[in-house]
Amino acid sequence: MKSIPISLTCLLVLAGCQVVPDRLPQAEPAPAAACYFPTSDEQALETSVELLTEWGFSLDSTDTALGLVSASRERELHGYYDRYDNAYGYGSGMRLFGGLGIGSGGVGLGVGGVGFGGGVGQQPVEVERVSLLVNDAHIRISRDIRRFDQWGDLRESYSASNDDFCQRFQTDFAQAVPTNGSPL
Rank of each mutant, 00 (worst) to 15 (best):
F148G: 01
S3K: 14
S3M: 13
R23G: 09
G89R: 00
A15K: 05
T62A: 10
S7E: 14
L12A: 15
R155M: 12
R73V: 06
F116G: 10
V127H: 07
Q175A: 15
L45R: 02
R168D: 13
S48A: 04
G105W: 07
Q167T: 15
S61Y: 06
L66C: 07
Q122H: 15
R73P: 05
V69D: 01
D153C: 12
Y90G: 07
E126V: 08
E74G: 06
V69K: 01
F148Y: 09
Q122D: 14
L133I: 03
S161A: 12
S70W: 10
V134S: 02
E46R: 11
E128A: 06
D136N: 11
G181V: 09
A71M: 01
G101Q: 11
P29Y: 08
Q18F: 12
G112F: 08
V114G: 14
A27D: 13
Q175S: 15
D85Y: 11
Q123P: 08
E74R: 15
V177A: 10
D149V: 03
S159A: 12
V134F: 01
L132Y: 00
R146P: 02
Q26C: 09
V13Y: 05
V114K: 14
R73W: 05
G16N: 01
L133F: 02
Y36F: 13
Y36A: 15
G98Y: 00
L96N: 11
A160Q: 04
Q175E: 12
T53M: 05
T47S: 04
Y80C: 06
Q122K: 14
S92G: 12
L14P: 04
V111T: 09
Y84D: 13
Y84T: 12
D85N: 10
I102E: 07
A160V: 05
C166S: 00
P5K: 08
S3C: 10
N135A: 15
G118K: 11
Y88F: 13
L100S: 10
L59A: 04
S182E: 12
S61D: 09
D136F: 09
F37D: 01
R23C: 09
G16H: 01
H78Y: 15
V13S: 09
P31W: 01
T64H: 08
Q43E: 07
P178W: 05
D144Q: 14
F173M: 02
G108H: 10
V114C: 11
W55Y: 12
E54F: 08
T53K: 14
C166A: 03
A32T: 04
V120R: 06
C35Y: 02
G119M: 02
D144F: 08
L52M: 06
D172I: 05
D41H: 02
P25V: 10
Q26W: 11
M94F: 10
E54Y: 08
S142C: 07
D136M: 09
R95V: 15
E156S: 04
V20C: 08
E42L: 10
R23T: 14
E28P: 09
R140M: 11
W151V: 07
E126I: 07
C17T: 13
